[in-house]
């Protein structure tokens, strides 16, 4: 089927670019570094937690174990990953325009819709690989380094989750995070269809992201009424995977808004791309 052939081509193009590996290399360096630092500097936190909760609870393993480390890193990076994903999503259309390769590619007997779908699919596969790698790296390396144990979640106090349930919760958290990152990639694709250079979409994506993030987090009455409709309001919804019990209704309400934003940005992107004149 032509879509799979085109998607294969798009993946080939993505993975032949150095920029596609920037985020992966960055995390390969920084995650072990954080895990090392985490191991060096948590002894006093560990002692404090143990003294405050050990009289009420029995904590299996070290409270600063691999699960807690992975949770800590997830909290830290959810705002940085979008920037790295925008490097690829922002280049997917605009890069071809800037390099003039669309003149060769788009003259083939293939529809603009097929080209668009294949580019979106390839970007989403890249997004998945990125999030999956991040998950494997933080969780896998965290567990290998700091061991298994009950997980501490700091949410309106300290919540202790059993180690046997932690992996399921991480799976849910990463799944919802992935959808958030799909939205980031969709915004980058949307900007990419509009311009002819790869820098614009990256800046555009991050500017929009930061602007909406500010509006959704500022505790001002004037923004309160629109905050439930802003996608950034739900960007930390993955944290709810570690609540007890998991608020599924809230999680899916947030997911609904994220998905509707994905559809909107990709839909507008498709309309722009189908009508676009490829001039240079």
């Amino acid at each position: 089927m032509i879509i799979f052939t085109l998607t294969r081509n798009e993946l080939y193009k993505i993975f032949s670019l150095v920029r596609s590996y920037i985020g992966i290399i960055l995390f390969t360096i920084i995650v072990p570094l954080i895990l090392w630092g985490y191991g060096m500097g948590t002894s006093h936190i560990e002692a404090e937690i143990e003294s405050s909760v050990s009289e009420m609870f029995f904590i299996e393993g070290s409270p600063t174990n691999g699960f807690t480390a992975a949770y800590f890193i997830m909290n830290f990076f959810w705002i940085h990953i979008p920037f790295l994903l925008a490097l690829v999503g922002g280049d997917i259309f605009a890069g071809e325009q800037a390099n003039g390769t669309f003149r060769v590619y788009a003259t083939r007997p293939i529809s603009r819709l097929s080209i668009f779908i294949s580019k979106v699919m390839a970007t989403m596969i890249y997004t998945f690989i990125f999030v999956f790698y991040f998950g494997i790296l933080t969780l896998g390396l965290g567990l290998a380094w700091h061991g298994v144990g009950d997980m501490l979640v700091f949410q309106d106090g300290v919540l202790i989750l059993e180690s046997s349930d932690a992996l399921r919760r991480f799976f849910i958290a990463y799944s919802f995070s992935f959808m958030n990152m799909v939205l980031v990639s969709s915004i980058a694709i949307f900007f990419s269809t509009m311009v002819r250079n790869a820098v614009g979409p990256v800046i555009g994506t991050m500017a929009l992201f930061i602007f909406i993030l500010m509006v959704s987090t500022l505790p001002l009455d004037v923004f309160k009424s629109i905050q439930p409709y802003l996608f950034t309001t739900y960007f930390s919804n993955w944290e709810q995977a570690f609540y007890d019990p998991i608020p599924w209704a809230d999680l899916f309400r947030g997911l609904g808004l994220i998905v509707s934003n994905i559809v909107m940005f990709l839909g507008i992107g498709l309309i722009i791309f189908r009508r676009k004149d490829i001039l240079s």
Binding site: K13, S16, L17, N99, G100, T101, R103, V104, T107, S280
Partner: peptide, 9 residues
């Protein structure tokens, strides 16, 4: 069409 451009890498 126009100058031939390719995926340079």
């Amino acid at each position: 069409v126009d100058r031939a451009d390719f995926y340079k890498n």
